[in-house]
Amino acid sequence: MENKLYVSMSPHIHGGDSISRKMWDVIIALIPALLVSLYFFGLGSLLVTSVSIASCVLFEYLIARFLLKQESTLRDGSAILTGLLLAFNLPSNLPLWIVVIGALVAIGMAKMSFGGLGNNIFNPALVGRVFLLISFPQQMTSWPLPKPFNLHYLDAATGATPLSVMKSSRFDRLPDMLDMFIGNTGGSLGEVAAAALILGGLFLLIRKVITWHIPVSILLTVYIFTGILRVANPEVYADPLSHLLTGGLMLGAIFMATDYVTSPMVKKGQVIYGIGIGIITVCIRVFGSYPEGVSFAILMMNGVTPLINAYCKPKRFGEVKKK
């Protein structure tokens, strides 16, 4: 028979889901926050975001092509996503050469050196950000103030972010809650717009890219922990809602902590992971020397993830209970 049949193991059909579908869904979910950022931070936001994405894609291509000598994996969109998330974690007035260094660390050190997508232990975008935060503390913590259609880039007016205000316990200087919700405050270019981020999160939930376990457990932990502190001493500690809406918490909880590769795989483990991130975040924010701790918290819990995976097993069907 000239027409030879194909033989393979069952199943013979596939659901059609793909990595690129998942990655592009996340990118789409980030677009509302990007638009808000472009509105408030203007030119700086545009420059930093495009340079970050372009350099991440370039570095991934170069490393895959010339160092690892494997086929390019650009099509899955994960490099674009890393670039976008890295940019979201940077201030919009950051010099572009620093952005390129961040991209190199994120892609080269945190992702490709482990063997590419799926093998990295830590979230690449966060490694890039934390590397920059430690190496360039001054540039990384001078936050531009929001100004609609801002055309200033490096010379944008800077000022205190709500988090540093909270750190010094001068709550009267905190911006309006509504401003914090829509993103009219200082901060990294993608983290300010809580409303847009929540919108993106809902999109991901509907598309079943993420489940509620990680974001909800992080946000709830932060809310309860800071709530207890607030009740204990309202003079020193900020109210829990401001904690939720400021800094990188929304971005971290919805987009960074839910990164597949670096988060636990079983629901029970995801809740433990979320609670861990929440507690560490609040500890750093309230008791530590940095005003913001989400990135550190996520990276620390990333490191614990293999352990969580090893101990949190799914409920087996028909498991015989030990007497």
């Binding site: 393979s8 063997g115 799926g118 597949y260 988060s263 795989m265 079983v266 799914p314 087996r316």
Partner: peptide, 22 residues
């Protein structure tokens, strides 16, 4: 069959397994 990529540890297989395996 489609081209095989790295496992991204999304956990979909755990969710889909009717026997609670990984």
């Amino acid at each position: 069959r489609n081209e095989v990529y790295n496992c991204i540890r999304c956990g979909d297989c755990i969710e889909a397994c009717p026997m609670g395996l990984e």
